[in-house]
């Protein structure tokens, strides 16, 4: 009966319903009053938003970008510096978003001339260059000493809830943008570029402009998330903000869920954060090794991500096995 119902639903409807339920669960976490749960919900929303962002360039366009930490870190610093200079909270977040978007658009003009491995290496270099710039420009950024960010008003629980809703807001906007891109002209053009860039050029896709649009979209939400993160933690420094681990984690999340889809990055980020939390708690010495293991496993066995697994087949097989077991008994 269940499989019949699943078969009759329009393609993807079940996925969107589960996704909506998941986001509602995240939003409800403050009701538990458990700050640890709220913190995890914030992490999940934050990484989901960033994985969705990466998906524009890495998933749809097929350009393996490792610039996420640069965008996130710049978002942290622009938000923090703006707030320290008296800008209200939301204005600082908006400024960080705009700054990072403009930064990515200009950078895209240069770096998107590279392809494949060269692009990947170039995009990693950007993280290092921005980190070095920020840590050396001590008069503005506080250098290696880091920066204190004005604390948000309210009790710890209220602040955590505010941060959660801000992150969820970014997540929803990024999700809506993904759906719009996926169904529109831009998404179609990006898929063309992904599959054959020369042919895309020849059928009239302005590849440079499309790629810059994708790269900018992959950056701006990370900028917002960074600024919100800075306000949340109250103190930022270059190593934490421009972490090379972040730049690898985010693509891994999108790949884990299913690159080039809307639900995949959200699924991947959720699964990854929960797994990571579990491994931190239980295998403190080994959690990095486990992250490496997940990456290798993904590359070899799940190139399409968790979404590409044919769950209905699993379900059918399990049902058949049960039926066979009953018949035998």
């Amino acid at each position: 009966m269940t499989s019949g119902l699943l078969g009759r639903l329009p393609a993807g409807a079940l996925g969107y319903a589960l996704c909506a339920l998941w986001i509602a669960l995240l939003a409800a976490s403050p009701l538990t009053g458990d700050n640890y749960l709220v913190r995890i919900a914030v992490m999940i929303s934050m990484f989901s938003a960033m994985a969705l962002s990466w998906n524009f360039i890495g998933g749809f366009t097929g350009y393996p970008s490792f610039s996420t930490a640069a965008f996130f870190g710049l978002g942290c610093y622009v938000g923090a510096i703006a707030q320290r200079n008296g800008l209200p909270l939301f204005a600082a977040w908006a400024l960080a978003t705009l700054f990072v978007a403009a930064f990515a658009a200009l950078l895209g003009l240069i770096i998107l001339r590279l392809k494949g491995h060269y692009f990947a290496i170039g995009s990693i270099a950007i993280v290092e260059v921005t980190r070095l710039l920020v840590s050396s420009w001590g008069s503005v950024t506080g250098g290696g000493d880091g920066l204190n960010v004005p604390l948000m008003q309210g009790s710890p629980g209220a602040v955590a809830a505010q941060v959660l809703y801000a992150m969820l807001g970014v997540l929803l906007v990024a999700f809506a943008a993904t759906l719009a891109v996926q169904r529109g002209r831009l998404g179609f053009g990006l898929r063309c570029i992904h599959q054959n860039e020369d042919a895309a050029d020849m059928v009239g896709v302005d590849t440079t402009r499309f790629k810059i649009a994708a790269y900018t979209l992959s950056a701006l939400f990370c900028g917002t998330v960074g600024a919100i993160y800075a306000s949340w933690v109250g103190y930022i420094d270059p190593t934490d903000s421009f972490s090379i681990l972040l730049t690898i984690k985010v693509p891994v999340m999108a790949l884990l869920g299913g690159p080039g889809t809307a639900i995949g990055p959200v699924l991947g980020a959720g699964v990854f954060v929960l797994l990571e939390e579990f491994f931190w708690a239980n295998f403190l010495q080994w959690n990095r090794a486990i992250l490496g293991g997940i990456i290798v496993f993904l590359i070899f066995f799940l190139p399409g991500g968790l979404l590409k697994i044919d769950y209905r087949r699993f379900y059918r097989r399990a049902a058949e096995r049960r039926a066979a077991g009953k018949a035998a008994a």
């Binding site: 179609f188 063309c192 059928v203 009239g204």
Partner: peptide, 8 residues
């Protein structure tokens, strides 16, 4: 359709 949408 890619040809029709972008080139056409």
């Amino acid at each position: 359709a890619a040809g029709a949408l972008f080139g056409g």
